[in-house]
Amino acid sequence: ALLLFGIVLLYGVGSNPEAWGATLSMVPSSDAFSFSFLYQLLSENPNHLLLRAGVVLIISGIAFKVGAAPFQIWVPDVYHGAPMPITAFLAVSSKSAGFFVLINLVNGPFAGMSEFLLPLLGFVATFTIFFGNLAACSQRNLKRMLGLSGVAHAGYLLVAVMASMLLPGESDRAVWILFFYLFTYLLASFAVFGVMGLARVTDDSEHEFSDYENLAQKKPWAAFVLVVGIGSLAGIPPFAGFIGKLLLFSVAFETKLFLSIVAMVIGVVISIYYYFGWIREICFHPRPVFEDDEAKHDPWKDVGSVGMLKPALFSLVLASIVLGLWQGPIGDAF
């Protein structure tokens, strides 16, 4: 609804600029939806109230799609309630589609309002990073925790969007970094959700930290895949997630987004708390073993043959490690 209302406002002003007090040096195009027409309209009327409202509403609609705060309320609930394969798909596809649209808009028709959009996106990015990481710290349900950490990742990616707006003529570098980060996020997320899908929990939505206690002894290969995926999400070397975050820091520094850099550093430090809390559960038995623990259902006891899933998960791990050490031709774009 927000997205549609924003489009309607831009179209309404663009189809008859004079009636709404907007100026336009060119003869109005018959296509008020075209990017070139909207770019000129917004460039010549950056302070027009209706045009600003339309742009903000469109950005808000896309912010829902990528899970950016304060439009993130659906994310942990959908992650929690959806089946594991759907959760894995939404974690990556929704963000990728949303950021693809957003980066085309802010560097295309909305470029004429960059002075207005940059502070707005900066606030949203900072708020998203802090909210996602702080909210994830209090979660004991892993799917909700991963959903809220995904909110924080959306905040990091918004910094790349801002950098692309501040690199005229070189915005492709920021775009490449954004897509590289999304690809590393895909590798890590699919590895993590792939292993989580093997656990024989009573309810697919109720994955708790305790379900992964001492997994390194029960299923060493699954624990290895999970630790690599979590480490990449946390941005720990030598995994691809570390390179993705490092590239984000570099392009943010280059464009002098110093407040965003501070927010990202604090966000990464906070994320270490909940990511490594999960790794501790996987690699160690974090509490004394009691007799009634023997009667507790072990979600890993009945995991049998996993067929082609194991090679697929190891390929994700290998790609994450290789990209963390050597980017090859991809690195030339950075």
Score class of each variant (00 low, 15 high):
135 A>Q: 15
22 A>Q: 03
229 G>V: 06
189 S>I: 01
307 G>T: 07
207 H>Y: 14
120 L>K: 09
21 G>P: 11
63 A>N: 04
91 A>R: 14
129 I>L: 07
266 I>G: 01
278 W>T: 12
285 H>E: 10
270 I>T: 10
122 G>N: 12
178 L>R: 13
297 H>C: 02
239 F>P: 01
171 S>W: 06
322 V>S: 08
77 D>G: 08
177 I>D: 01
175 V>Y: 07
209 F>D: 05
158 L>D: 15
156 Y>C: 04
218 K>L: 07
98 G>S: 02
192 V>L: 11
55 V>Q: 05
243 I>P: 00
99 F>G: 01
80 H>Y: 13
27 V>W: 00
332 D>W: 02
169 G>R: 04
304 G>S: 08
250 S>W: 04
146 L>Y: 06
231 G>E: 05
38 L>V: 03
308 M>Y: 14
220 P>R: 03
272 I>E: 08
146 L>R: 03
254 E>A: 11
5 F>E: 13
287 R>E: 05
257 L>G: 08
319 A>E: 04
269 V>S: 09
37 F>S: 01
275 Y>C: 08
242 F>N: 10
85 P>Y: 08
197 G>S: 15
217 Q>I: 10
304 G>V: 04
329 P>T: 11
303 V>P: 08
306 V>E: 15
99 F>K: 03
218 K>T: 12
213 E>I: 11
12 G>V: 15
255 T>Q: 09
120 L>H: 08
36 S>T: 13
86 I>F: 02
126 T>F: 12
126 T>M: 09
219 K>F: 13
57 L>H: 12
256 K>E: 02
79 Y>G: 04
23 T>P: 00
19 A>C: 06
62 I>S: 08
12 G>T: 15
249 F>G: 04
211 D>A: 03
100 F>V: 11
176 W>V: 13
221 W>S: 13
24 L>H: 10
78 V>S: 06
289 V>F: 10
301 K>F: 07
143 K>I: 10
6 G>K: 07
282 I>P: 01
334 F>H: 06
222 A>Q: 13
232 S>N: 05
208 E>R: 14
205 S>P: 00
295 A>W: 05
74 W>P: 10
13 V>M: 03
270 I>V: 15
58 I>P: 12
81 G>D: 01
84 M>E: 10
251 V>K: 13
80 H>R: 13
124 V>I: 10
298 D>G: 08
11 Y>M: 01
315 S>M: 14
214 N>R: 07
271 S>I: 07
5 F>W: 12
230 I>L: 14
153 H>C: 00
12 G>D: 06
184 T>E: 02
108 G>Q: 09
119 P>K: 06
49 L>C: 00
203 D>E: 14
244 G>S: 13
329 P>R: 08
168 P>R: 13
